[in-house]
Amino acid sequence: MNWSPLWISLSVAIPATMITFFLGIFIAKKVISANAPVSKLLDVIFTLPLVLPPTVVGFLLLILFGKNGLIGRFLYSVGIQIVFTRLAAIIAAIVVSFPLMYRSAKAAFEQQDGNLIQAGRTLGLTKIQIFWRIEMPLAAPGILSGTILTFARALGEFGATLMIAGNIPKITQTMPMAIYMNIQRGETKIASVWVLLMIMLSFFMILFLNFINIKKEEKGIHNITS
């Protein structure tokens, strides 16, 4: 049995999740601090990939990164081709999972008690210190759930990836594509193996992320009580 979809999926979903993690938090903070009409417009734009069908997202990305695309034409002129590579799969995964991370982070930051942040200011903490020591720990549960959603979405990505990265066995064929192809051929046993693997992977990722969160909470409590 060809196990390459496993490796391909992981090497797409993990980097995509990490990049989306930082991107989502960063942009959420920027949107919150922007002025009213601008922030509302940005909010719509950043949530859009969630609303559009993945194939449509993939098609738009294809136009963007294709030979005549806004970004594509520059890349081709310097000899870089993104379409039908694993990087394209990562980009697709980032774009579709971004709204999930963005919205989770934004909601987590918006719900915070402003008094705590003010308290930090009066204690003389810098902006960065306030962010890492007050805002992030408070936002942790929301950001954690955002990360889980992001990873799950990136791992299960199919439509957009198919459009911009293609379904090339051993190169860009991810687990969802392997499942689809095997069901098409009637190889339901092989498809079931992949389905089980995906469930297990998601299960362990969620366990792992929850574990990190618990460790953080324990440390936090320790710091207060010591």
Binding site: M18, I80, L87
Partner: peptide
């Protein structure tokens, strides 16, 4: 993790 994962992801970036 990114350093480990990214190189394998970038193969195929150069024109053939």
């Amino acid at each position: 993790m990114m350093i480990i994962m990214l190189p394998t992801s970038l193969t195929g970036c150069e024109k053939e």
